[in-house]
Write a protein that binds this DNA or RNA. Structure first.
Length: 592
RNA sequence: GGCGCGGUAGCUCAAUUGGUUAGAGCCCCGGACUGUCGAUCCGGAGGUUGCGGGUUCGAGUCCCGUCCGCGUCGCCA
């Protein structure tokens, strides 16, 4: 090692010792006769003094000319700082190193930005110069937390007898699910591999093989449009277990959540984690990943709306649709007409036609631009249902079930953030269970699997496969952390009768099934144990535990919204020779 | 693909209703300085206002197109 200590290590007890430090020059204060250097590495920052009597004039002069962010090595004695010159913002602030020897290991070109500057540059520049961005404390802390979370996961599953098995990156495309990233085959002209969207099929095969408890940190790829919490390549903690039911899987993950929160954040999370069915989540929060850090539940007032003369309410109820709303506690004076107009435009983005609202006045009556359309009795009933108290703001959407869900979910989420209804360090983890097996494609009217076609229905819903597919619930469960889907899993079908029925419902005939999943169906015929599992979104876990709202902040080299890497400039051009070898030719590309 | 926000010096931002030579701080360069820790002081350099077109006597500002970044809807079994 070139160094004897890190830049975060030295304390008062080291005073008098001869040390060697290596690091980056974060900043430099040149007084001519002496130079103060803040030397940084990932462990911390130590003040280095280059001045008399230890350093000669030439060395002091050289130190003054070192460019910021250069890498240097210094040797010297640890010394107490002068009386009153300590820095209590630094762990190493009681001491400094008096430099006797200094080597510039490598200079730094003038950087477009520095890791220590307070004004963060635009994200495009940060991504282009990711090596500088990653020198920032926040980025280093995020990646260190990521590493710690992964270690906790690995320890946990090793202790629970899981076997880590790697599955292929080059697989075959299956038409279900997200768009695949394809890799052309050189050897097989015109054929393609697909990068895995998840190791789903392989892990089931591993169960058939008897591995019983499989786990993997798996890179997954989906060629879909990006979001703040979505990257085209991401990491799943993927696992599968034999001879288990949904309770077993959730119980196991409860333990992991509690342990991770404890080890990484020092927080206690009570287990078992609360559970809520999908139906209940949709009724109370309008979404299958509700943010449970704050209340403000959706209330259904359709029964009252149906009795009113107000055309919008009455018409909605008569058409079999819904009037549902939120009670925004204590917000009547916090939102002006203009701001409510903004909210109205906001919910329109989600398909709502408008936003009806009422203020609960001091005398307990409801005031609204539309209240003249409603009887006092009905207003009182609405207030009662909404548990309205003076100062509250009641907001309603009148629309289809789906639109009221989407609009009120979005509205609640926005209001929760705007009104700061939760604290940034809150951690709420819960399960959403009993997802529907199927959803109907609006255009074609066909059923499709909500999760995947191998998801087992609830035992008590088996008969509904024939009678009422829409009401058939699955043995599927999602882990939700702070309103974000942090993982999801299912118990799989392991008997061929049920599997055939599900395929039939999905419109997948025997030949198609064989063609798409033949290898899995074949394996299932050779003694498949009952099995199920879950996949956890590692990037999202890190983001949520770090209290961040953007997944790119916890990924070392993320891609932009257009799925580009601004540092390497991937994706890039390739030689025509390479294309020829792969039996490819590009067509229909617009010239710049 | 739709909607919204943004792009001005290396960086972060400003620039009145469309009106003089597009400014400031930081960074950078040169100089001074032995106790700073956002060092200080003096001086200096630095601009195709993302790109292309249009309107106008005049465009950073208005219009059209386009590229890039971000958010979001669709999409993401």
């Amino acid at each position: 090692m070139l160094r004897t200590h890190t830049c975060g290590q030295l304390r008062k007890s080291d005073v008098g010792h001869e040390v060697t430090l290596c690091g980056w020059v974060e900043s430099k204060r040149d007084h001519g006769g002496a130079v103060f250097i803040d030397l940084r590495d990932r462990y911390g920052l130590t003040q280095v003094v280059v001045g008399p009597p230890e350093a000669e004039a030439s060395l002091i002069d050289e130190a003054g000319r070192i460019p910021t962010e250069s890498v240097i090595l210094i040797k010297g004695k640890v010394a107490d700082r002068l009386e009153g010159k300590t820095n209590d913002k630094l762990d190493t602030g009681d001491i400094e190193v008096r430099t006797e020897h200094l080597e510039i290991l490598n200079t730094c070109a003038t950087p477009p930005f520095t890791p220590s500057q307070s004004d963060l540059p635009g994200e495009d520049l940060r991504l282009k110069y990711r090596f500088l961005d990653l020198r920032r404390k926040e980025m280093q802390q995020g990646l260190m937390m990521r590493s710690k979370i992964i270690k906790t996961m690995r320890d946990f599953f090793a202790e629970h007898d899981f076997i880590d098995v790697e599955t292929p990156i080059l697989g075959r495309s299956t038409p279900e699910g997200a768009r695949d990233y394809l890799v052309p085959s050189r050897v097989h002209a015109g054929k393609f591999y697909a990068l895995p969207q998840s190791p789903q099929l392989y892990k089931q095969i591993l169960m058939v093989a008897g591995f019983d408890r499989y786990v993997q940190l798996a890179k997954c790829f989906r060629d879909e449009d990006l979001r703040a919490d979505r990257q085209p390549e991401f990491t799943q903690l993927d696992l599968e277990m034999s001879f288990v039911d949904a309770d077993d899987v959730m119980g196991l993950i409860d333990g992991l959540v509690a342990r991770t929160a404890k080890e990484v954040l020092g927080k206690e999370v009570k287990t078992p984690l609360p559970r809520m069915t999908y139906d209940e989540a949709m009724c109370r929060y309008g979404h299958d990943a509700p943010d449970l850090r704050f209340d403000m539940e959706i209330v259904n007032v359709t029964s009252v709306a149906a009795k009113t003369e107000f055309r919008v309410f009455r018409g909605t109820a008569d058409a079999g649709n819904f009037v549902r709303g939120l009670n925004v506690k204590d917000a009547a004076t916090k939102y002006s007409r203009r701001q409510i107009d903004d909210l109205t435009n906001y919910v329109k983005e989600f398909g709502a036609k408008g936003l009806a609202w009422f203020r609960v006045e001091e005398d307990g009556t409801l005031w609204s631009p539309i209240s003249k359309n409603l009887d006092e009795a009905h207003l009182a009933e609405i207030k009662e249902l909404m548990k309205g108290e003076p100062g509250d703001l009641l907001m309603f959407l009148a629309d289809t079930w789906e639109v009221t869900c989407k609009g009120l979910y979005a509205l609640r989420k926005r209001l929760g953030a705007e009104l700061k209804l939760y604290s940034p360090d809150q951690l709420d983890c819960s399960w959403i269970t009993e997802f529907p097996m199927f959803e109907k494609d609006e255009e074609t009217g066909n059923w499709s699997a909500m999760h995947h076609p191998f998801t087992a229905p609830l035992a008590r819903d088996l008969n509904k496969l024939d009678e009422d597919p829409a009401a058939c619930r699955a043995q599927a469960y999602d882990l939700v952390i702070n309103g974000s889907e942090a993982g999801g899993g299912t118990i799989r079908i392991h008997d061929s009768t049920t599997q055939s029925k599900v395929f039939e419902l999905l419109g997948i005939d025997e030949a198609t099934a064989e063609d798409r999943f033949g290898f899995l169906l074949n394996a299932l015929r050779y003694g498949a144990p009952p099995h199920g599992g879950i996949a956890l979104g590692v990037d999202r876990w890190v983001m949520l535990l770090a209290g961040l709202d953007n997944i790119r902040e916890v990924i070392a080299f993320p891609k932009t919204q257009k799925a580009a890497d601004l540092m390497t400039e991937a994706p890039g051009d390739v030689d025509t020779d390479q294309l020829t070898e792969l039996h490819l030719r590009t067509v229909g590309i617009k010239k710049d």
